[in-house]
Amino acid sequence: MLMAPKEILKIENLTTHFYTWAGVVKAVDGVSLEVKEGETLGLVGESGSGKSVTALSILRIVPRPGRIIDGKIIYKGENLLEKTESEMEKIRGKEIAYIFQDPATSLNPVFSVADQLIEVIRRHQNVTKEEALEKAIELFRLVEIADPEIKIWSYPHQLSGGMKQRMAIARALSCQPSLLLADEPTTNLDVTIQAQILELMKNLKKKLGMSMILITHDMGVVAGVADRISVMYAGRICESAGTKTIFYNPLHPYTRALLEAVPNIAMKREKLKIIPGAIPNLVSPPSGCRFHPRCDFAGPACVSAVPPLVEIEPEHYVACVRAKEFSGKLPSRS
């Protein structure tokens, strides 16, 4: 019998708040999720739902005035929130790497790409400058950049967006991390380049045997890449399940609304449904289920209590009090 793969990362009740003048922004408020060894988890949600803050929390690099105030981040059996800053520096980039949303701003404009790569490589590996340069050029081959020996000396402003993102990926992969956090790595690229980069990341993940969290607001992107999906709304996870389950048997009304918002060739000329309303203000979010003001199925129970994330069926977690009613059938929205 096949052993179920064990998780490389397990987040429990992660709570990260921003202490701003306007009040406490509850950007991440009790998020739990897990990534199994070798799998890709898609973290999906609208803009502002707290995906990036979750990922930054994993590396403990949440910018001020943000603070992680509660929860556990268990990586390879150890709680990262109990580590010292210097222990974290050894984990960042080496064990867990991050690829940013916008390649235009994630490379330092005043240093050559070679300098930036060499610095990261030498930070985590005991090699000379020359050896580090060799490795950097090797990485450039890996991310399929032509003429790596020449291109590596470029400065970020001399490169196209797709090229920059390849270089950012090269930097993230430079120390063979076990876990890659890819924060919307294709959102700011042209559609054709998007497909190329996604394909590249998929192949690299397989080649290097990494686990990955792919953050996106685009259901279409995760469909082809993720093994499992966690759907996030207003700082909380509302549904977690295998990709197939999410697409064919979504139980949370928000997940369904997201799916209906995906353009689909089969839909022909039918109008795209959009989710009415906007993501709530996270300083004073709605009581109970945070989605209830926008939900077509909300009842009194949804307003009064926070629905816990429960395992409705094996490996399928939903945070909705009415989830059982939706099981098996899809009530259509009025």
Binding site: L56, L59, I61, P63, E85, M88, E89, K90, I91, R92, G93, K94, A97, Y98, F100, Q101, D102, T105, S106, L107, N108, P109, V110, F111, E119, V120, R123, H124, A168, R171, A172
Partner: peptide, 27 residues
């Protein structure tokens, strides 16, 4: 210090000294 490349430098595990006095200061 608000820029992504500073966050990226931190995310790569660079020391606080390098982040501030090399990556941030030059800019």
């Amino acid at each position: 210090l608000r820029q992504d490349y500073i966050l990226a430098a931190r995310a790569s595990g660079l020391s606080e000294r390098s982040v501030i006095y090399k990556h941030a200061l030059r800019n």
